[in-house]
Measured scan of single mutants.
Amino acid sequence: ATNIVSKVKWYNSTKNFGFIEQDNGGKDVFVHKSAVDAAGLHSLEEGQDVIFDLEEKQGKAYAVNLRIK
């Protein structure tokens, strides 16, 4: 899926990962520091509106092509 609009559930800049809620009630989506860095960001804030693409690797959903709404 591409261009999903949602909100950051939480992000831990010390552990370099977090999760984004899915508005459709699906499972929370993992977001890694590499996606945050690629977006030119230093961190994410809880409740922040984001747009991302969903990529599945080894049966897990990852946020990629992250951008701020």
Rank of each mutant, 00 (worst) to 15 (best):
S13A: 13
G59R: 05
G18L: 03
N24T: 10
K69R: 11
F19K: 02
K27F: 11
E55M: 14
K69F: 14
S13D: 09
A38S: 09
E21L: 15
G26H: 10
G26F: 10
E46F: 11
N12L: 08
K69P: 15
F52T: 02
R67I: 08
E55R: 12
K7N: 05
K69L: 15
D23H: 15
V31Y: 02
V31L: 07
F17A: 01
D37T: 14
E21C: 15
K27P: 14
K7W: 07
I20E: 01
N12Q: 07
K9I: 06
F19L: 04
H32A: 05
A63K: 01
A1N: 13
H42S: 13
D37C: 14
A38D: 08
V29M: 04
E45D: 10
L66K: 00
A39Q: 03
Q58M: 13
R67S: 06
H32D: 04
A1E: 10
K57C: 13
G40M: 07
F19T: 02
V8A: 02
L54W: 05
Q58R: 12
S13Y: 11
D28V: 05
S43E: 11
Q22M: 15
D28Y: 05
I51F: 07
A35H: 06
I51A: 06
H42E: 13
H42G: 12
L41R: 05
A38P: 02
L41Y: 09
F19V: 04
N3E: 07
A35L: 03
D23I: 15
S13K: 13
E45P: 07
A61D: 07
R67L: 05
V31N: 01
H42F: 12
S13M: 11
K60D: 05
A1R: 14
H42C: 14
L66S: 00
G18H: 01
D28I: 04
F17Y: 15
V31M: 04
A35I: 07
F52N: 00
A1D: 09
E46V: 14
N3I: 06
V36W: 03
K33G: 10
N65S: 04
D28L: 07
V36E: 00
N65L: 03
F17M: 06
A38L: 10
D28M: 07
D49P: 13
K33S: 08
F19A: 02
V36C: 04
V8L: 04
G47H: 07
K7S: 05
G26S: 11
A38M: 09
Y62T: 07
A39S: 10
E56F: 15
I4A: 06
I68Y: 08
N3T: 08
E46P: 15
V64C: 07
I4V: 11
N12I: 07
K57M: 10
F52M: 04
E55S: 09
K27C: 10
S13W: 10
V5Y: 12
Q48T: 09
S13E: 10
G26M: 11
D53N: 06
H32V: 03
T2N: 10
